[in-house]
Amino acid sequence: MQKKFLTFLGRRRNWSIPYALFLVFFVVIPLGLIVFYAFTNNEGQFSFSNFRKFWMQPEAMNTFIFSVGIALITTFLCLVLGYPAAFIMSRMETRSTKLLVILFILPMWVNFLIRTLATVALFDFLSLPLGEGSLIFGMVYNFLPFMIYPIYNSLLKTDRSLIEAAQDLGATPRQVFLRTILPLSVPGITSGIMMVFMPVISTFAIAELLTINNIKLFGTTLQENIYNGMWNYGAALSLVMLLLIGITSLLNSEGSSKTAEEGGLI
């Protein structure tokens, strides 16, 4: 018996079996449950009623469209603010660069709820009104590091000789940037966009806290439905969100797992 066990262990590919079972039980089956609940009604019978409800109810639909809008604005602002910062840091050759990168990542280590409440305090302190403005500021503030870091990593990895080649061949600095540096940093940009857009579309809590419950995002709608026991409807709304995210990752690149790995998520 013990010998059998040892030869089983000896085949190292068998070592993936516990995790494979774990993944089936805690990832595949739960996701399947979302699909199951979405397509059934309260009595467990197959039905489209949840999706019909989503189409008919202007409230959920409006929240959904509003959330996509907020996510697009936030992602755009993070890209516009973050790219120059990543670019500047990737050009600096001093020892302080590493420190700078750490300083940009550090705020992520403070619990995001505390960061969000601190933003609220900042707005109170400057006696600015809480509303859409504070919502977008809070979102950009929370997710900017997630845009800077992947772009910085991919800029750092670009082959310097390609840039020098472009310069030797007579490209102006502008052309070097547009034709060489920018295209080479696309993996970082897509990774950054994914890492900002997806969390923003699905957050809840941040929006409530930043606007004193005045603005609701789609994530809050999901959470409220699940909390109030409307599991089927909540599951259907989750599927809608998953669909949107699937489309975004397809638009961004064929291999989003590859960009996540190479864009320096880790």
């Binding site: 993944l23 805690f26 739960p30 979302i34 969390p199 699940i226 995210i245």
Partner: peptide, 24 residues
């Protein structure tokens, strides 16, 4: 196959993972 399933919890938004586990 395993690597694809492995990236699912990373790529999925928190709230989807949360709801799926809640339902489980």
């Amino acid at each position: 196959a395993i690597q694809t399933v492995n990236t699912l919890p990373i790529l999925n938004p928190d709230i989807i993972t949360a709801i799926s586990l809640f339902l489980l």
